[in-house]
Write a protein that binds this DNA or RNA. Structure first.
Lengths: 315, 315
DNA sequence: AATTTTACTGCACAAACGTTCAGTTCTTTA
DNA sequence: TAAAGAACTGAACGTTTGTGCAGTAAAATT
């Protein structure tokens, strides 16, 4: 009976968080092993049986937005109050980014979309009040072979266009090909050539930002590179990628084998987009947000308090 | 500026509880030492800047009351939802115990009162709607020399009587005298003799229950015994005291030097009181609540969830 | 029914944590 | 202004907590 487990989790949580018992005591009292208690507490947090409520000072939030804007040299910043658990924050950020898009969306605009978990949330939660027939959604990076996670850029492009009632332009290519040669050939294909030309005329774009953690690397998770290769990139100073383009801590782009094989909007073109909305939450994104901002790859940031505090602490 | 510290605490708390950073990371980000972060988190909890919210299942609460009643053989049990931090729970328990007293209070009753922090809260928070002229409040245990904490039985007796608009009977003696001989002499003093006679006719009583921790021992804190003596008592199997009487884990009373010098209502008399309300909260009280219940020293329990869960886990 | 797969357990280790302590700074008081 | 006191700091230590792992039991599959 699952309600039984739930009650046990509640009991353990109460002893730990309200009774401040050690996990060891709880184990003795309730007759579990100590590691089990640790895991039960994790479950209780994940299931939102326990939540951490932290009193706010809203003045501080607005103040932080202003500061972040200055320090990162951005057009606009939205900081969302962080909740316990990253998923909550990611959801909020996705929703907010979507609202932001709707706010700036005007007839005839061409909107680029990258990929990633936050983009997925954004598209899923988007509920525009009207249709945008003459808007065009443009895929900024090639698709991934495995659809195990539904964050593929192709899918996102189509879904976003559908939600908006807009048309879209699909990049008919994988995210990585096997060599620079193949890429250059593909770039000369008329259909693909046209798509890349379109990418130079974007009015706005939505991007996510990945963390420094190599295991979170998009290319690794999609199976394009091994974990060792990902680690090597990290060791060589590549902290993250913006729309697939691997970038340095200082925001600069430098040559590396991955970039040569990448089918995606070029960094210099990204820098030219009038409005680029980046959505990323959690402390682990702080460093990469700073790097991407230094590189000038976005100018509107939607993030959460945790990341904001962390960024301000680091700059 | 103290509001500045408060904001820093909020930031640290958000990073820790919402961003799940380690204290080490926070230290690096915010530029504090790691121990400082640890202390800041403690502060944040104490100042209720963070609170742990745990979802309830109220059915479980009523169920636990029933179970506790059975297992400890009591007349009645009130379990209060526990809050973060012990003080909150103690407050709630004190208030509830007071309400319980008012509920059962009838004209002409003689009410005994022991001492302790919970009793202090109970008296402080009590706000009866009417006066009880012919009720008598009777002091169950001698007074303490130091009034450093206002939990002295004499003071509590007077304060309770005042609140109720009742009369009271004071035990004009210290809690501990220097020898059995002195005690026996005192017990023959007419005034004191009369008081002890009155104690045999109580209709109800309110008691607290101390924890097993020797440092919390009332006698130690009042300066009657050294910490070593307190530890020795603990090692010899005396887990707590009920109204000053040291009792064993199984609830039995056994001879020891402390009991011989004690000026307080005798355990066999306490057992005869029709209604004895014990109020105690927190995991650290679980064991002693069980012992006192086994000894039959109370029959109504006011406690919190944490203690309740712990007791049920142990029996 | 036999085999594979999955899910769960507790051990043992490593990381994270709270706390004591000695040294320091900042207040108070004379 | 000097001396005594209180409050605070981070280094070091011992405890508490999270997690990889090998072993086991239950579930799914053949």
């Amino acid at each position: 009976m699952t309600t039984n487990l739930r009650n046990e989790l509640i009991k353990v949580a109460k002893l730990y968080y309200h009774g401040n018992c050690s996990q060891d005591e709880i184990a003795r009292i309730m007759g579990y092993s100590r590691p089990r208690v640790s895991r039960m507490l994790t479950m209780a947090r994940e299931m939102k049986i326990v939540e951490f409520q932290i009193s706010d000072s809203l003045i501080e939030l607005e103040n932080m937005e202003k500061q972040l804007k200055e320090r990162l040299g951005l057009k606009d910043v939205c900081i969302l109050p962080s909740e316990s658990g990253r998923l909550g924050s990611m959801n909020a950020a996705g929703i907010r980014a979507g609202e932001y898009l709707i706010d700036i969306l005007k007839p005839g605009m061409r909107i680029g979309i990258s990929w990633g978990a936050t983009m997925d949330v954004m598209v899923s939660q988007l509920s525009p009040e009207r249709k945008y027939e003459n808007v065009k959604v443009v895929q900024m990076i090639g698709g991934t072979p495995t659809s195990s996670f539904n964050v593929d850029s192709r899918g996102l492009t189509v879904r976003l266009a559908n939600k908006l009632g807009a048309s879209c332009s699909i990049l008919q290519a994988p995210q990585y090909v096997s060599s620079k040669k193949v890429r250059d050939m593909l770039l000369n294909e008329p259909e693909i050539k046209a798509h890349f030309k379109l990418l130079k005329k974007l009015d706005a774009a939505l991007i996510g930002i990945s963390s420094t953690n190599p295991e979170h690397s998009a290319a690794y998770r999609a199976g394009y590179i091994t974990i060792e290769e990902a680690n090597t990139l990290a060791k060589n100073g590549f902290v993250t990628d913006v729309n697939g383009n691997r970038i340095f801590k200082d925001g600069s782009i430098r040559h590396n084998a991955m970039n040569d094989r990448l089918m995606a909007m070029a960094p210099e073109d990204i820098r030219q987009i009038p409005i680029t909305i980046a959505a990323a939450v959690g402390e682990e994104k702080a460093e990469t947000i700073i790097s991407a901002a230094k590189g000038g790859f976005f100018n509107v940031l939607v993030t959460d308090e945790v990341a904001a505090i962390s960024i301000l602490g680091r700059t």
